[in-house]
Structures are given as C-alpha cells and as structure tokens.
C-alpha cells in the first residue's frame, strides 16, 4: 500500500485527490454565494473545533478576487436572480466546480482503472 502511494502513479493520484478536495471546497464556497457566510449550524460546528475563523477568513478572502470575477462573468451573460429569493449566482459557480471536480475524478479513475484494460491477455498458469 505505502509502496503504491509512493510510486509515480500514486503521487499523481494523490495530486488528483487533492485537486478534487480543493475544488469541492470551492463548491461549498460557491453555495454560500461566493462568501464566507456560513449557515448557523456550520458556524456552530466549526467554532466547536476552533476552525471557524480560518474557514470564514479563507472564504471571505476569495470574495473580492475569484468571487468578483465569477459574478462579473455571470452578470455579463445576463444571469440575474431574484434578490428576495434563496437562489443565488453561487448556484452557477457550484455547478462549475462540480463539473471540474467530476472531470478530475473521472480522469483519476481512468488512470487507476487502465491497469486492467488491455490489448493483451496472458493466461494465468494453473497449478
């Protein structure tokens, strides 16, 4: 197992796994409307383990850069949401990052799975 993880393939896969996690975090950030405004239950939960400040701070730090860009792009494309509703532009960001995460995940699975796809079958010798 350890050997596998440290092989070149294992390292590539770790990188992929890291990328999927990172993009999934962005999904959460998008769902909050590109801000760090976590719902109460999450605020409570993360405060208990002492991480709330870090998470909200990180999320908020993305708002003026990435958040601004995404918002501008979507508004430029004519997307508008009813401010009185619970819909948000973040829904579109969520779907974008979900797409990216699925792509990375799909490619990673293909890298793992291609071992057993072959153009050649050598018959196992039976004892």
């Amino acid at each position: 197992m350890i050997k596998y993880i440290l092989s070149p393939k294992g390292i590539i896969l770790l990188a992929f796994a890291g990328a999927v996690v990172a993009v999934s975090v962005l999904m959460a950030w998008s769902e909050l409307g590109f801000t760090g405004a976590t719902p109460d239950w999450l605020t409570d939960l993360t405060s208990r383990i002492g991480l709330h400040g870090a998470i909200a701070g990180f999320f908020n730090s993305l708002t003026p850069s990435l958040g601004e860009d995404l918002t501008k792009y979507l508004q430029g494309k004519g997307v508008s949401v009813n401010p009185k509703s619970t819909a948000s532009l973040g829904d579109y960001g969520y779907i974008l990052f979900m797409g990216v995460a699925l792509t990375i995940g799909g490619i990673a699975i293909m890298i793992i799975g291609r071992e057993d796809a072959e153009e050649k079958t050598v018959l196992p010798v039976k004892k």
């Binding site: 004519g78 974008l96 979900m98 797409g99 990216v100 792509t103 799909g106």
Partner: peptide, 23 residues
C-alpha cells in the same frame, strides 16, 4: 458507460450550464 465516463459526460453538461447560462 463505465462510471468514470459518466462523470465526464455529466461534467460536460455542468460546465456548459456555467459557460452559457440560459435566459
């Protein structure tokens, strides 16, 4: 198709939804 291909098929649609949002 195998799941990995399904992921990519889904992702293609999702990314289009973002790039060309409907109105």
């Amino acid at each position: 198709p195998p799941p990995a291909v399904n992921y990519i098929l889904t992702a293609l649609v999702l990314v289009c939804v973002f790039i060309w949002p409907l109105s």
